[in-house]
Design a protein around this nucleic acid. Structure first.
Lengths: 197, 197
DNA sequence: AATATAAGTGAACGAACATTCATTTATATT
DNA sequence: AATATAAATGAATGTTCGTTCACTTATATT
């Protein structure tokens, strides 16, 4: 039998990502995607059941990559401030170096597709995060908090800064905006201040 | 001459909002919208130049409502912790009481439509915010920060909690999640801790 | 070299799409 | 009551959509 062409598969993912980020979900047309990826429309349906399945599988794939990047050198048993810094910097670096990939994830998260994809987060990631935070609380390095509150304070500011950095504009969109290392450090410091007793 | 039917206009906005939040931007069809709003497709084009214009104008309209709600009883010259609390609670209440409206705004913010709409934020709102923060810095109630960092720490956690509350599920989507007043207070307290010297 | 098998294709399908247009309807002004 | 005007319409426009299907192509196995 004939083997699958990994390059085709990758091209489809790549172009789909680009189309969605640049034109939104209503800008993703299967025929245009096929043309952009250099394959026949029918080929896409070998890999994906339908358009929705393509989007959800793409999300799973990108989420995996993001999680891998975020957890690089991360040790859930490390001291809290250190562990949080590793995750922060990993995440910031990955987002800035892979703007299409991270914008796509943000776009999904704030769209109805999220209801479908949300269940598919790697449970090992959640467990690692939970252990990390509970370690911190046990050692009195972190104030006692529901996971959702912790998460919102720890990472939502980062995501927001990254989003403005991508857009190249800050609040109200009138002024240019660049997220530099100093600002990242400054924000992280304040986040740690909020979360430590 | 014949007068415009305000009810029709409102019905179009209402149904468009519902369609976008429930089915995403690719779920907004002009013909389905017309049917849902009880008007002819052609009628929509009296109010809006085209589909994109409808979405952008809808954003402007909803943004106005959100800003009005957020600034209710807000005084930019009030003490920092007090002013921030007013905005927080206003915003949280409006979002929870008007889930469609606030989900729509979040959806736009994380989509390519944001590039078009971002310039249209009411400048008076931005000026009020700027004055409020600069007041705080001047009075040494707030650490010195770029507006973008301030904003990210002050509000991104709130938006994130509200989003999970809407979805009814927390991190990873496996556990139910309800944002209650206690949690809101707890988070606000930590945010203030981060932002005050 | 022959064969079986799944990858890959281009053209075609009906359905749904955004938008327009000739016409009708309601009403403020006269 | 007549008139002017813009609102409102339903049907129709051509286009693009997601998806399928009969067919060809490449290759791993024999």
């Amino acid at each position: 039998m004939r083997a699958r062409d990994e390059l085709k598969e990758e091209a489809i993912r790549e172009e789909a990502l680009k189309m969605i980020v640049e034109k939104g979900f209503d800008g993703l047309s299967m025929q245009k995607l096929a043309k952009a990826a250099g394959v026949s429309p029918a080929t896409i349906y070998i890999y994906y059941k339908d358009r929705d399945d393509l989007i959800v599988q793409l999300w799973v794939h990108e989420m995996d990559k993001m999680i891998d990047a975020t957890l690089k050198d991360f040790d859930p048993d490390a001291p809290f401030a250190e562990g949080l810094r590793v995750q922060w910097m990993n995440r910031a670096r990955y987002s800035i170096e892979n703007p299409l990939n991270s914008e796509f994830l943000e776009q999904i998260k704030h769209s109805p597709y999220h209801n479908v994809s949300i269940d598919k987060v790697d449970p090992r990631f959640l467990e690692a995060m939970q252990r990390f935070v509970h370690n911190g609380i046990r050692r009195k390095e972190v104030v006692k908090l529901p996971m959702e509150v912790y998460w919102s304070i720890a990472f939502a500011p980062l995501y927001n800064l990254v989003r403005m950095h991508m857009a190249g504009r800050g609040l109200g969109g009138r002024q240019p905006f660049v997220l530099d290392d100093k600002m990242l450090e400054q924000t992280l410091k304040l986040v740690i201040k909020a979360l430590t007793p």
